[in-house]
């Protein structure tokens, strides 16, 4: 058992919970919450590899996680703006209200 493994298992659990929720929930906001959880799982594995990986560079892994957090912030802002636009058109945040592209 290498020292990074507990953290990687925790990240895997977080990713799986987020994925199940993002696929199952009907509320678009909560699907976005599931996506945020998956992003955070990726971040956690970045930090775990930074701390316990064999590479001696002290900064690059942290920078990776830092930029990932910044991009996740942008993603949340745009996603929530899209949800507000959807609500304005359909008066609902249910994902089933946004089915006009369905063939």
């Amino acid at each position: 058992m290498n020292p990074a493994q507990p953290y990687l298992f925790l990240a895997a659990a977080l990713f799986i919970i987020g994925m199940a929720g993002a696929l199952a929930r009907r509320n678009a906001i909560l699907a976005l919450v599931g996506i945020e959880l998956m992003l955070n799982a990726a971040n956690l594995s970045f930090v775990a590899f930074w701390r316990h990986g064999p590479h001696p560079d002290p900064q690059t892994g942290l920078m990776f996680a830092l930029f990932s957090i910044a991009i996740a912030g942008a993603e949340a802002a745009v996603g929530l703006a899209l949800i507000i636009a959807l609500f304005r058109h359909r008066r609902s945040v249910s994902l089933e209200a946004a089915e006009s592209l369905k063939g």
Binding site: L10, L14, I17, G18, A20, G21, A24, R25, V33, L37
Partner: peptide
């Protein structure tokens, strides 16, 4: 884990 389960 508990928070994520609750959130979903």
């Amino acid at each position: 884990v508990v928070g994520a389960l609750g959130a979903m």
